[in-house]
């Protein structure tokens, strides 16, 4: 978060430079964008639309993680399941989000479900593959030790498998969480009547450049807040364990 003032300063400088080069009609000055943002905030639109996009993205990530982690843990315990699931998930991982967005629009029509489906489809494969990788990478000596001491299966899962998988899952979660907002916004742009992406679409259709910049700034701000507020906190226990300290 210490880099935020510097980042804002740089964005402001670049904004004014763009205004000077392209003109205020194509690239409005940062002060006008801020004023537009304040107007949207005062009317409540800014927070309502942000909450819509946030809730769709969060629901998508939640579903993807429940399914991906659960399936990854189960598949990781069976080499046969890993062999069966890996090619299919690799193929799904290679599928561009626009395919899922198009299918969701055909199946469900335009609306709030499209961004959630797009986020689930886009984030489930990496979460599943990371969890699978985490289980497969576990130290076989720890498994042997658990067998020798006849540690009960629920305890093994909670205290050996899950902590071992955690760094792998976290890397996937950090990547997918920041990607989810972009996915949700793209899906709203193409297939929803509301949300930040839809507002970007309507600002573009009306050539409302101040609005376009203001809604874009909000999407970026959410991404930064998610990374600084959530992902950075989750990384701390992993770093502490690597340094041999108790988690703060």
């Amino acid at each position: 978060m210490t880099a935020v003032p510097g980042l804002l300063l740089l964005a402001t400088a670049l904004g004014y430079a763009a205004t000077a080069i392209a003109g205020p009609a194509l690239s409005p000055p940062p002060a006008a964008v801020v004023l537009h943002l304040l107007g949207l905030a005062a009317g409540g639109d800014l927070f309502i639309e942000a909450a819509r996009t946030l809730s769709r993205g969060a629901l998508g990530i939640l579903i993807a993680n429940l399914l991906g982690v659960g399936a990854g843990l189960a598949a990781g315990c069976s080499t046969r399941l890993v062999r069966l699931a890996r090619p299919a998930l690799t193929a799904l991982n290679a599928c561009p989000p626009v395919v899922w967005i198009s299918l969701a629009m055909v199946w469900m029509g335009t609306g709030g479900a499209v961004p959630t489906v797009a986020v689930v489809a886009g984030t489930l494969p990496p979460v599943f593959l990371a969890t699978l990788e985490g289980v497969a990478s576990q130290d076989p000596r720890l498994r042997a030790m658990s067998r020798a001491f006849a540690v009960p299966a629920p305890v093994r899962l909670a205290r050996m498998v899950v902590p071992g998988v955690f760094p792998f899952w976290l890397a996937a979660f950090a990547h997918t969480s920041s990607a989810a907002w972009k996915l949700a916004a793209v899906a709203e742009y193409l297939g929803a009547a509301d949300g930040l992406g839809a507002r970007i679409y309507w600002a573009y259709r009306r050539l409302d450049m101040e609005g376009l910049y203001a809604w874009t700034a909000m999407v970026v701000a959410i991404g930064v807040l998610v990374d600084a507020g959530l992902i950075a906190r989750l990384r701390r226990p992993v770093r502490s364990a690597r340094r041999g300290e108790a988690a703060p």
Binding site: D139, R141, L142, A144, M145, S146, F149, A150, V151, P152, V155, R159, M160, P163, G164, F166, A241, A246
Partner: peptide, 21 residues
């Protein structure tokens, strides 16, 4: 020979894990 300790839990946690059953 290589100890096989859980790296993410402390000394008491390592014993608690093995003695859980």
């Amino acid at each position: 020979q290589d100890d096989a300790l859980l790296p993410w839990t402390d000394a008491a946690g390592n014993l608690a894990y093995a003695l859980a059953g």
